[in-house]
Design a protein around this nucleic acid. Structure first.
Lengths: 126, 126
DNA sequence: AATCTGTTCTATTTCGTCTATAACAAACAT
DNA sequence: ATGTTTGTTATAGACGAAATAGAACAGATT
């Protein structure tokens, strides 16, 4: 179930993108499935149409979905091999958080444990 | 050496905070060391005094440094035991990036490898 | 005594987010 | 065929964060 938090400092469209990606990881959404129209989902979530539209385009730029104008948004099959460029982008996103963990005295294994727990958490939630 | 990127979508004060934390992790800054005054560092980096001030206060809120009014900013000793609350905060920050990695088809071990590489990279840089 | 320090205040510019409304042309449903 | 739904595009406004600028203050340093 999707739900956005207005009080968060994370933009609504980013929250939505992340939650849709979580649904895919969890298996609730699979390759070929279509997402609700921007108007319908906006109505369900109580946000503006453009906010949902922005999220969909963010997902499209990440290669997660395909937007067919006048038709809808479809979940794409995930690439079998992740590109080196994508890994580089992910690394840059991970970096500041890893630094913060390290400066707090955490060891590599403890950070790995946090990652492991997050993965477990994502796959268990509904 | 500190250097900020004006074209980045990451705020200047956040970039600065991260780089200072990296210096600590790397050992270039140790407990008891004092940071440059907000005016001096701002001059070196070519940014406004308030931008550096904001970074220092962000670091103080994270418990990394201590600001003594009219004196300066000093690197604090890192807590021997990281609090559960801090781990929770870090987890929430890690989460969306982990999701993005998973939706790209990465496995747990591959994400661990990215983390490991980041740590190596941080400690090697100058 | 002069300088340097972080602090506080006011002000302005710029940009991203979010909302709102409207119109368009293509796809779809009945 | 008609009416609805679709994503797209455009314009507009409100709001807050980021960043800059300049000035003044009082305590610490030299």
């Amino acid at each position: 179930m999707l739900s956005l938090n207005n009080d968060s400092d994370i933009p609504l469209y980013s929250q939505l993108s992340t939650q849709i990606m979580e649904s895919i990881v969890r298996g609730d959404l699979s390759t070929g499935d279509t997402l609700p129209s921007v108007r319908v989902l906006a109505g369900d979530l109580g946000v503006n149409m453009h906010t949902v539209n922005k999220s969909y385009h963010e997902l499209e730029s990440k290669g997660i979905i395909e937007i067919v104008p006048k038709k809808g948004a479809v979940i794409k099959a995930n690439e079998q091999k992740i590109s080196a460029k994508r890994i580089e982008i992910l690394s840059e996103e991970f970096r500041p958080i890893v630094v913060e963990a390290l400066v707090n005295g955490m060891k590599k294994e403890e950070i790995h444990q946090i990652i492991t727990n997050i993965i477990i958490k994502i796959k268990k939630e509904d």
